[in-house]
Amino acid sequence: MQVGSERARRTLAFLRHRISSGEWPINSKIPTEPELMQLIGVGKTTVREAVRSLATVGILEPMPGIGTFVRSRMPVSSVLTDYLSEFSVSDLLGYRRALELEAAQQAARHRTDEQLAEMRRALDPSNPPPEHPFGRGRGRAPGQFHFLVMEASGNNLLVGLYAGVVRALRQAIAAGTVVEMTDIASRLRDHLDLLAALEAHDVPRAAHVMAQHVENDLAPADPS
Rank of each mutant, 00 (worst) to 15 (best):
L80E: 15
L84S: 05
L84P: 07
S85R: 14
L92P: 08
L92M: 14
Y95S: 14
R97T: 02
R97A: 01
E100N: 00
L101A: 00
Q105F: 10
A108K: 03
R111E: 09
R111F: 06
R111L: 04
T112F: 05
D113N: 06
L116P: 04
A117V: 02
R120H: 09
P125L: 01
P125Q: 08
S126G: 07
P128G: 10
E131P: 03
R136P: 13
R136S: 14
G139S: 11
A141C: 06
H146P: 02
V149C: 00
V149L: 00
M150L: 14
E151Y: 00
E151V: 00
V159S: 05
G160W: 04
Q171V: 11
A175W: 09
A175M: 11
G176N: 12
V179C: 01
M181W: 01
D183A: 11
D183W: 13
I184Q: 05
I184A: 00
S186L: 12
L188A: 01
D190W: 15
L192H: 04
A196L: 10
A197D: 02
L198I: 10
A200W: 09
H201M: 10
R205N: 08
A206K: 00
M210K: 10
Q212A: 14
E215I: 09
D217S: 09
A219L: 14
